[in-house]
Design a protein around this nucleic acid. Structure first.
Length: 216
DNA sequence: ACATTAAGTGATT
DNA sequence: AATCACTTAATGT
């Protein structure tokens, strides 16, 4: 990557606060930017990941998939974050247990895997970043486990909508009932009916291809 | 105007 | 809460 380029400035702006200067220099030198369109898949279950992705912009959705190809939403990864599963894969060189795809147009910073270990011992800020990232992902995972195990579907649905709104930074969520059903591993009919209830309660407004949240 | 896709409904398990 | 079978409504060509 050329010094002083627009890309380099962008990298500094988005993840610069995370790392010490020297490490940042290395990152800029070694990594490539990869652009993904919405819906594009980064990794599938069973694939090996040749790099560590850090998100510059956009959002990644991480899902677990059953043998029928149905997805269950695990968590999202936002700008500045990285993928916990990938980190595990590269250290132990195992295969991915999850599928990850872009929710919107997304830019990734791809870091060569060999660097991971070196940097772990070389840079305190890298260690802190990786550990904290792990911590966040596990927390989020526990949150979704709680939701699946203890919450009724209607509560889960409302949580889903609120999470989505926070993530996209808008109360108008562009989503179909079918997509929600897929994410929550439910069926379209059930979601439609629960949404109807929420609308009657005044929590949301339903339009075609869009749900409008009345309040967080 | 017609086909396609999203969303609503009633009955059944 | 899920599934079936069907209707109605919105949208693209």
């Amino acid at each position: 990557m050329e010094p002083g380029s627009a890309e380099q400035i962008r990298i500094k702006e988005t993840i610069g606060y995370l790392f010490e200067d020297e490490l940042l220099k290395e990152i800029i030198q070694l990594s490539k930017i990869k652009h993904l369109e919405a819906e594009e898949t980064i990794i599938n279950i069973g694939e090996k990941i040749p790099f560590l992705p850090i998100i510059l912009s956009g959002t990644i959705k991480v899902v677990r998939e059953n043998d029928q190809g149905e997805d269950l939403l695990l968590y999202y990864i936002e700008s500045g974050d990285t993928c916990a599963m990938t980190m595990q894969c590269c250290v132990k060189s195992t295969l991915s247990e999850v599928k990850a795809l872009a929710m919107e147009s997304t830019d990734l910073l791809m870091i060569p895997l060999e660097k991971m270990e070196q940097w772990m011992s070389k840079y305190a800020s890298w260690r802190a970043y990786i550990l904290q990232s792990y911590h966040y992902r596990i927390q989020e995972l526990i949150e979704t486990i709680d939701a699946i195990a203890f919450m009724k579907l209607d509560e889960r649905l409302l949580k889903y909508l609120k999470d989505q709104a926070k993530l996209m930074g808008t109360l108008e969520i562009p989503v179909t009932h079918q997509q929600i059903a897929d994410d929550l591993n439910s069926s379209r009919v059930v979601i439609s009916r629960l949404l109807k209830q929420l609308e009657t309660k005044g929590d949301i407004k339903i339009t075609r291809n869009k749900i409008i949240l009345k309040n967080l």
